[in-house]
Design a protein around this nucleic acid. Structure first.
Lengths: 242, 242
DNA sequence: ACAAAAGTGTTTTTTGTACACCCATGA
DNA sequence: TCATGGGTGTACAAAAAACACTTTTGT
């Protein structure tokens, strides 16, 4: 849609001075965080009961309006901290959602972030009954355009996990190769060949063999590994992990 | 940075009601378009002389504040139309830039889009001497954080052109394989083997041999092809073009 | 002894890379 | 006739995919 010059003037904006002035139109800006976690069952997403009247009873993403003096990334960090008590989590901007009618209360554009957390690490702090981990395949109808936001973030995650080593953020410090493979299968929603998977991840040289074993499993215990973050950071080739 | 509860209250926002109310803080929202074009020489980007006092004389991206009733994508479309006279160009959102101090006049967050156009198609309409195509490797210091925005968009373009068929937007309807290869070499900034390149693009089956030849070239004329958009749209596998 | 998952190699197929000569046109 | 880029195929290397049996633990 092309706005006529007249329409542009109605907004109080002068042609060729596209900078904010007192009488300009302003919008509200929020961040929404898609917080992914993984447990033994499946990939999950953390949702909160909506307190917005129109969407009462629906689940929604965790979000908030940005404050005047905080960067966007800081706003997302803050939302995450307020909900999980954790700081410096993996967090990445994905897309800005800005359809004029996406929010019933008025013009609100929202910047979507996604985060990867280790569920066990934050389970402890989560006493809030309005918060719940949902299986990624059964979230139902969310408030606002949050289904769309969630899908966009999931697609990004699936793309990114193939070329970067972000997946380790979903695992505890020490993990078995089975856990790592389960992660990839859960996120990408495919089945992978065990032998080929092991061969590939071990050939990257990015896993440190901890010479430790799983305990209390009712099958042959697996070796435990940890991610060699240092080596990854200092290596030149940072794409094409899997 | 975590904002204290006190600080949050100063912004006029109530806890657990993260929806805009009259006394809330609002920001200005703009779109900035990185318009890429290609000529016989190199990949180019369309820039405009900044009319912002602090950055007088510098070049800047084409952008504008969004209007109250237009979607973000519409705003980007409008900016593009106002500058090139063309509609329905390839246009894609890349990233939202929202550092609190990125704009000297106040809080302005900007959503970056990139567009791919066929330079010859728009040369005709461009009588504006404030507009200029710049070689991608010599844009100099731009106004605001526009160098950063440009770099982010270029990186996205380089990633995307490898897996999707967006590159054809930079070419005229009919093109030679040499022109297509030049496109990929210019965008990715690498040299490619001619025989392997031809083999690969022809094996996709996405090029239609027009049974026409170049004319008025001082060497053996090349066959002309066009992109089989229909076949691409209807095919299942839409990634990994090159 | 059984159930459950760990660990391990080889073969085949597919994909990518390296590389050199003759051809058609305009000047 | 020369300069310029068009057009073509093969051999080798690397990566991905397919595939089955033995081992270790807890119950």
């Amino acid at each position: 849609m092309i706005l006529s010059e007249e329409k542009l003037k109605q907004t109080g904006k002068k042609e060729h001075s596209p900078y904010p002035e007192k009488d300009d139109f302003f919008t509200a800006v929020s961040v929404d965080c898609v917080i992914f976690g993984l447990d033994q069952e499946s990939l999950k997403v953390l949702l909160i009961k909506s307190d917005y009247p129109l969407y009462e009873g629906r689940w929604s993403l965790l979000g908030d309006l940005i404050s005047p003096d905080e960067d966007l990334d800081q706003a997302a960090d803050r939302v995450l901290f307020e909900r999980t008590g954790l700081q410096n989590l993996f967090l990445q901007q994905v897309h800005c959602f800005g359809k004029a009618d996406r929010h019933p209360s008025g013009r609100v554009i929202s910047i979507a972030y996604y985060s990867l957390v280790n569920i066990e690490q934050i389970e402890l702090l989560k006493r809030d009954h309005e918060l719940h981990w949902h299986n990624i395949n059964s979230v139902g109808e969310l408030a606002f355009d949050h289904n769309k936001i969630l899908n966009t973030c999931l697609t990004h995650l699936q793309q990114q996990i193939k070329t970067e080593t972000i997946g380790f953020n979903l695992l505890p410090e020490k993990f078995s190769l089975r856990a790592l493979q389960f992660l990839y299968e859960s996120v990408l929603m495919v089945e992978l060949d065990r032998r080929n998977f092991r061969k590939k991840v071990l050939s990257t040289g990015l896993l440190i063999d901890l010479k430790e074993m799983e305990a209390n499993v009712r099958h042959r215990p697996a070796k435990l590994f940890k991610f060699n973050r240092q080596k990854y950071e200092s290596s030149e080739i940072k794409n094409n992990f899997i």
